[in-house]
Design a binder for these strands. Structure first.
Length: 479
RNA sequence: CGAGGUGUAGCGCAGUUUGGUAGCGCACUUCGUUCGGGACGAAGGGGCCGCAGGUUCGAAUCCUGUCACCUCGACCA
């Protein structure tokens, strides 16, 4: 252990104060900075690079499914926003409005988009005329604004970056399929790219998106037992189409309303990465999105041949991996800690002793395991280490989620579990909103997360009212 | 928006009770020695004490207002 006095930059322990730990990580890993505007954050280069990697991966997945990127205006006229009643009621409380342009008061105020269903619909009304125009599979990468009362970097900010897919289909079945397909894309992305397991399922009526017929969600579990809504996919039916008068001529030469979906994930995923994988030494980044996958740290750089050999390794690896060669004059120990703080998945150490033996040391961020590797097999060893880190991170996250998933079959058991064991509670539910609200109230905020696709039969009765149960529901506190 | 707390150098803090030239640690700059888990020495640079008023010969310190941030609740991706 290093001298305590030197640990000035040390972060708050994760188990001591999770909220403080989170803030420390976000700042010390240089992901964000606070800005002068309430609830808005500066995303710094290291944080933005994670987002860019997320974008690249997701964008590829979207395009593989046939989606095209577009860009919609950031302003929504009040009259347009009001066309769909449920939708406007859901978003009105958190809209930001522009009322003055230059020095002129506007005739109609403009909402800074909190989401773009209405804009897409306005456009779709113009460009959809025949069944041959369907499906329309659009996506946009942009920022949206929701005037939040309390904010936290990445998890809840007044402005945040996201993607929103908006699609139109000929039939309800096709639209429903799209909704589930995109949820699956998110689920695969979380597992394959972010190394995060999650519960997927359907939101209850109470929790579904404003204006949607059905909302599906992906719910990863954070290390402290709090859930996060990690992405949603909505099925709208033809409700918006009717409100916005979007019609097409069908194969039967009749006018029809198309069926709609929307789906989105945001920079909140970076918050999930931090809270699922991070530890007391800082970030632990999934190799697939880490801005630096491999940090090469040369030891005793004044010794002959070390810098040159390090450079050689860098040149060998940089074609295949995102590599940082750190030949700065900081001490090796400082660099080790620094790259751990920043969550770099694999570190390569190279010193005079290694060079003598034609080897280097590979250190995994997730386990700290040190592996001595012959320089002859460097590329292969790094490739394997990155894969092992990914797999190890996923396993650890899965174990955490399983350990933090509890079952309650009676009301008392539910309340007691909510109090004593943070995490998901699996419990039966009758389907009534009153029971949802009551459970939330008595537990101080445990809400229904979703009705999972794979329901289990835990009992016949609703955990709250004792009436016949309709569904098994995952419950939990959320960010 | 309710309850509590904090604003002093890039970061973390002391100083405020009892008004009297703005301090400490880390970070930063230069030079030298170091280098396998946050190195050491020497010499430097950096502040409208959150902001705006007021009281006073004099305010980081007292008074009023205001803003921001943090923690906990209610609303939400």
């Amino acid at each position: 252990m290093a001298d305590k006095k030197k640990m000035v930059e040390a972060i708050t322990s994760r188990d001591t104060d999770f909220a403080k730990w989170y803030t420390d990580i976000v700042k010390k890993a240089e992901l964000v900075d606070y800005s002068g505007v309430k609830g808005c954050m500066v995303i710094r280069p290291y944080g933005y690079a994670i987002w860019e990697n997320i974008q690249a991966d997701l964008d590829r997945r979207f395009k593989e499914k046939g989606h095209e990127n577009v860009y919609m205006p950031m302003f929504i006229p009040e009259s347009l926003l009001q066309k769909e009643k449920d939708h406007v009621e859901g978003f009105a409380p958190e809209c930001a409005w522009v009322t003055i342009g230059g020095s002129e008061k506007l005739n109609e105020k403009l909402c800074v988009r909190p989401t773009s269903e209405t804009l897409f619909c306005e456009h779709y009304a113009k460009v959809i005329n025949t069944y041959r125009d369907l499906p329309k599979l659009y996506n946009q990468w942009c920022s949206v604004v929701r005037w939040e009362k309390t904010t936290r970097p990445f998890l809840r900010t007044s402005e945040f970056l996201w993607q929103e897919g908006h699609t139109m289909h000929e039939t309800p079945e096709e639209a429903q399929e799209e909704t589930l397909t995109m949820l699956k894309v998110y689920e695969d992305f979380y597992r394959e790219t972010l190394a995060i397991p999650a519960v997927v399922g359907k939101k209850t009526e109470k929790e579904k998106f404003a204006g949607a017929l059905a909302t599906y969600t992906i719910e990863p579990m954070m290390h402290n037992g709090v859930a996060l809504q990690g992405g949603t996919s909505h099925y709208f039916g033809d409700g918006f189409a009717k409100s916005f008068d979007i019609t097409y001529t069908g194969r039967d030469n009749q006018q029809h309303y198309p069926h709609q979906t929307s789906w989105g994930v945001s920079t909140r995923m970076i918050g999930a990465i931090i809270m699922v994988h991070g530890d007391d030494d800082g970030l632990v980044l999934p190799p697939k999105v880490s801005p630096i996958q491999v940090a090469i740290v040369p030891i005793a750089t004044h010794k002959e041949g070390v810098l040159e050999k390090g450079e050689e390794l860098y040149n060998r690896l940089k074609g295949e991996f995102r590599v940082k060669y750190d030949d700065s004059d900081q001490s090796p120990g400082w660099k080790f800690s620094q790259y751990e703080m920043k969550g770099v998945p694999v570190r390569v150490e190279l010193g005079p002793k290694d060079i003598e033996k034609n080897q280097c040391v590979i250190v995994r961020r997730d386990t700290r395991e040190k592996i001595f590797v012959s320089l002859d097999n460097l590329e292969e060893a790094v490739r394997k280490a990155l894969q092992d880190v990914h797999d190890g991170m996923y396993e650890k996250a899965l174990k955490n989620m399983q350990e933090k998933t509890h079952v309650a079959t009676t009301f008392d058991e539910f309340v007691q579990t909510a109090e004593e064991k943070p995490g998901f509670i699996k419990a039966m539910w009758c389907g009534d909103k009153e029971c949802e609200e009551k459970l939330k109230e008595v537990t101080g905020g445990v809400k229904s997360r979703c009705i999972p696709f794979e329901e289990e039969h835990l009992s016949d009765k609703c955990v709250c009212c004792g009436k016949e149960a309709k569904h098994m529901v995952y419950w939990g506190k959320q960010y």
